[in-house]
């Protein structure tokens, strides 16, 4: 059995009193696209910096293709490419110079693919980095990571600053990478992105991995979304067993139900419901259910 592209065991990072990451156990299989979802401050970047050997773990360990992330960083880095959410590049280099430098440092540059990516992301490589917008700088580091066709792509909120069209291009590129057998680890706080790209999703909150599964498994785990409309007054649903995330809006109400739907249906019927809609929740709603009405951790 070949070593998995990514595996962590009890990976922990403390900054003083803050536990940024708490005993993370994670395994990503070859060819998987795994989403890593969590609000700001959940510990996504910390996890990725540990995987890259930029930070030392307080406890536990991480491996990439069987190489220890802390002790064999160079070996792991030969197999992966990383895209950060913020692209601090050298202002006086042009886009082309930056890509040449990063390609040479990594090795294994596919020049034809690079040129194709420049075309697809609509980047002007003759411009100096200081003249690029944030989105354009983000394109540079995306191209730099994709163009070496690494076995593992580690992406930390990679689409920040990209316009919707370029976000679409990015999604195509990730699909292509998966089709070629590359593995992708994608951290994000944008549900639709993860939903569109990932086979499996982990949800991180306050440094702890609170959910991990396929999209289908997560749906099963989670609540049903219910929308109801009334002729008369909207009943108070907050005390109904299994119901959460109640949002009343005029004569309509939205909520989520876990477990049995019976108590809710009884109350709705008694209140004179005129319209009832229920469906599987989107990942967004899953997320809301996970964190309650408030999107913030902590």
């Amino acid at each position: 059995m070949a070593d998995p592209p990514l595996r962590t065991e009890g990976l922990t990072k403390r900054f003083g009193n803050v536990v940024a990451l708490d005993h993370l156990d994670l395994e990503v299989g070859k060819g998987e696209v795994v989403g890593y979802l969590g609000p700001n401050g959940a510990g996504k970047t910390t996890t990725i910096r540990l995987l890259l050997g930029l930070c030392r773990p307080s406890d536990g360990r991480a491996e990439i293709f069987g190489f220890d992330c802390q002790h064999q960083p160079v070996e792991t880095h030969r197999r992966l490419a990383f895209v950060a959410g913020e692209a601090n590049l050298w202002p006086s280099l042009t886009g082309a110079e930056t890509l040449a430098l990063l390609g040479r440092v990594h090795g294994g540059l596919d020049e034809a693919y690079r040129d194709e990516l420049i075309e697809r992301f609509d980047l002007d490589p003759t411009k100096k980095v200081r003249a690029y917008s944030k989105g354009n700088r983000q394109k540079v580091i995306l191209i730099a990571a994709l163009m070496v066709r690494p076995d593992l792509l580690v992406l930390d909120e990679p689409t920040s600053g990209l316009d919707p069209l370029m976000e679409q291009t990015f999604r195509h590129c990730v699909h292509e990478a998966r089709d070629r057998g590359q593995t992708v680890f994608l951290s994000s706080h944008i549900m639709s992105e993860v939903e569109a790209l990932c086979d499996r999703v982990g949800i991180l909150r306050d440094g702890r991995l609170v959910e991990m599964g396929t999209l289908a498994e997560m749906r099963h785990l989670s609540a049903l979304s219910v929308e109801a409309r009334f002729d008369g007054a909207v009943p108070d649903l907050s005390a109904v067993p299994g119901v959460s995330a109640v949002q009343a809006d005029g004569s309509a109400v939205r909520c989520q139900v876990r477990g049995s739907i019976e108590p809710l249906v009884k109350i709705l019927a008694a209140a004179g419901v005129t319209e009832l809609l229920s469906r599987e929740p989107s990942l967004e709603e899953l997320f809301l259910a996970q964190y309650g009405g408030d999107g913030h951790a902590g």
Partner: peptide, 15 residues
Amino acid sequence: SEGMLDHFVVRPVSR
């Protein structure tokens, strides 16, 4: 501190 070093050490360059 400006984050430029990251680009090297996430590639096969040892510290």
